[in-house]
Amino acid sequence: MNTTEVNLPAKACNDILLARKQYNRERGILPSHNIVIERLLLRELELRSAYTDLYKKLHMHPRALDSFFGALLDSVAFWGPERIVKARTERDELVRINEQIAEMGEGLAILLRRREELHNKSGFRSNTSYHIGDLIKEAGQHNGHFTLYLEDELETLQARYDLKYWPSLDACVDAIADDAYEAEIEASDPLTEAATVAARSSLSDFFKAWFVAIDEHRQAVNGWIPDSFRPSDNSLASLASCALGLEDDDLLSSSYVKRLRQRLRA
């Protein structure tokens, strides 16, 4: 194999990365991708073996190599270790918010019922809204779609059906509280689920998201990466180390990736 042939895999991979970088710059998009691309370009020598492995397995399949790098860039940019920690924090916050909504909603419904009793029995009124339709109209005044298309129809319904046909304000708040109380937190996409399913955060979360990203680009789901494609453990370790900016003692080994794959299969 001559020098040109030896360098061909690295050149092919670098050309893909440079093309993506230029595309992003021209459109002012995905700066997080370009940060990862720069890391990969600067550490080309460390990636020669990985690039050879990728090129050998993917270059015969149109767009597969580019698709693989797209999955890598997405995973690092959006599901790197720091982003996964943030996602876990946001999930925990969502749990707390739903708990607070349920608790505060229950208390607000009680207050609304008591206010209605006072309106009816105390001889005093506070001139507050009591019809859910009135509150909907008030809330929708800054929504042009509502005022143009729904407001008149809502007023027609209010005129047609008296108060007994409508839910009370406290019943609506109770429904909001019940909805929050019964909420089940789930990931909105497969990568988020893969990255946060473990009880504790670790670097393996990134790999789980990356593996899902690769699978989502396979031919079985109308992608470009062949279903049989399986990069080597060494390639995955090198690519992850460079893409994540790991150095020295933090560099990942092929044995780490091999053990991780075995745990995931189990």
Rank of each mutant, 00 (worst) to 15 (best):
A159R: 08
R263Q: 14
A102N: 07
R114L: 15
D92N: 05
L42K: 06
H142A: 14
E186R: 13
E93P: 01
L58P: 04
S255V: 10
E90Q: 12
V6M: 09
G80C: 13
A159S: 03
S254D: 12
Q22T: 11
E184W: 01
K164V: 05
Y165S: 12
H33D: 10
S168M: 02
D134P: 04
A209R: 05
Y130Q: 12
K57Y: 04
D233W: 00
A187T: 00
A10S: 09
R27S: 05
E151V: 14
A199G: 04
A195Q: 03
E155V: 12
H33N: 06
L108E: 06
L45E: 15
P81C: 00
A139Q: 12
I35P: 00
A187H: 01
A139E: 13
V173M: 11
E184K: 13
L252W: 06
E106V: 01
L58E: 04
R96Y: 07
R200T: 04
L260Q: 10
L94V: 03
W210A: 01
P231E: 00
S75H: 00
I136A: 15
E93T: 13
C242V: 15
N143H: 14
A50Q: 03
E99I: 08
E5N: 05
V173Y: 01
R114Y: 07
V36G: 00
A171F: 06
E193F: 05
V212Q: 01
E82V: 12
L108Q: 12
L244Q: 07
R113C: 09
D215W: 02
K21A: 05
R20E: 08
E247Y: 07
A213W: 00
D248R: 08
R125S: 14
